[in-house]
């Protein structure tokens, strides 16, 4: 008959309950450090994963509000300061820089005085 099971209980590693538990304990002891690392890692990444979307949304809102506020309140002053700063940086006297920005033509005497002023 080939339709009946073969009795492999002599080869069954779980047949001796005490010995099997010893084996399980031994394996658990070996893998315990690796499992602990995995759990800790999963815990940190899990928390980050859970919070990153709301944190990202909050950061985006804060960024937009900050940029809008800066543009409205300090935008023109910054632009002016920036232009003066660049003109001074390349050695153009402040008075001449103001004439350039205002598109007014100075008198020759004013231009001479401005050029003779110490930088």
């Amino acid at each position: 008959m080939t339709d009946e099971r073969i009795d492999f209980s002599a080869l069954d590693p779980t047949a001796d309950g005490d010995r099997f538990e010893e084996k399980v304990e031994r394996i658990n002891a070996v893998v315990a450090p690796a499992l602990a690392v995995r759990r800790a890692s999963a815990s940190v990444f899990g928390q980050v994963a859970g919070w990153w979307r709301p944190l990202l949304a909050a950061a985006a809102i804060a960024g937009v509000v900050s940029a809008a506020t800066l543009a409205l309140v300090e935008g023109p002053a910054l632009e002016s300061e920036s232009e003066i700063g660049v003109a001074e940086a390349i050695g153009v006297p402040e008075q001449i820089a103001q004439w350039v920005r205002s598109e007014e033509l100075p008198d020759p005497s004013e231009l001479l005085i401005a050029l003779e002023e110490p930088r």
Partner: peptide, 24 residues
């Protein structure tokens, strides 16, 4: 494969060593 394996095992081991379970 199961039938061939069981047949070969029974031929090799004989009835004396094998205790058979009822069919599943």
């Amino acid at each position: 494969h199961l039938m061939a394996a069981r047949r070969a095992l029974r031929e090799r081991l004989g009835g004396g060593l094998l205790k058979e379970y009822s069919n599943d």
